Simulated assay, not measured.
Amino acid sequence: MDLREERRSDRQAVRDVHLQAFGDHGPVVADLADTLRDTITSEGGLSLVAEHDGQVVGNVMFTRSLLDAERRLVDVQVLSPLGVLPEFHRRGIGSALVRRGLEVLAERKVPLVFLEGDPGFYSRLGFEPAGGLGFRKPSLRIPDGAFQVIRFPAHEPWMTGTLVYAEAFWRHDSVGLRTA
């Protein structure tokens, strides 16, 4: 399994990963990934793929958002989406993608990475419930346990406050859970 940064030529393969990985919700996630990709720069954000025998089988994206802290706005990253082709589940691919992405972001001196996700999965990768650490979620539709953060050495104690998602998450209605 090779982990590497996404290339321009991977666009359709990454879209296919999310279409398959997220079932009925796949088109929304694939569209979100397409929009988020356009916000990634060499200094801000990251898109990694997992490749197996020349085929892209997984993808994770980290993109810029803001933390509205008392002193000032702080650039942070949001992990979303993370997708792996269903036939490659339970092989550690998603975990490997996340771990590699977190290594890169820590090296870039990113202070915080947030996500909405399964605490059982992400706690194994170092994420903690964000609410008890002084962070407020950007929407009440996000379950408390799903709102998680990982703090890196660049984090300072004053860096608490409300996460403000990038506009793309709102445009694609990809914040929290909708009822019905």
Rank of each mutant, 00 (worst) to 15 (best):
D16F: 11
H25L: 14
H25D: 15
P27G: 11
D31R: 14
L32F: 09
D34N: 12
T41Y: 07
E51I: 04
D53R: 08
D53Q: 14
Q55G: 00
Q55N: 08
N59D: 11
V60S: 00
V60L: 01
M61G: 00
M61C: 05
S65N: 10
L67N: 02
D68N: 12
D68Y: 02
E70A: 12
R71P: 00
V74E: 12
V76T: 10
V76N: 02
Q77I: 04
V78F: 03
P81I: 01
V84Q: 04
L85I: 04
L85W: 02
L85D: 06
G92N: 07
I93T: 13
G94Q: 07
L97T: 04
V98C: 10
L102M: 15
E103K: 09
V104H: 01
L105K: 04
L105S: 04
V113W: 03
F114I: 04
F114Q: 00
G117C: 09
D118H: 13
Y122H: 10
G126Q: 11
P129Y: 10
P129F: 07
G131V: 09
L133M: 15
L133V: 06
L133F: 11
L133N: 12
L140A: 15
I142M: 11
P143T: 02
D144H: 12
R151Q: 15
R151T: 13
F152G: 04
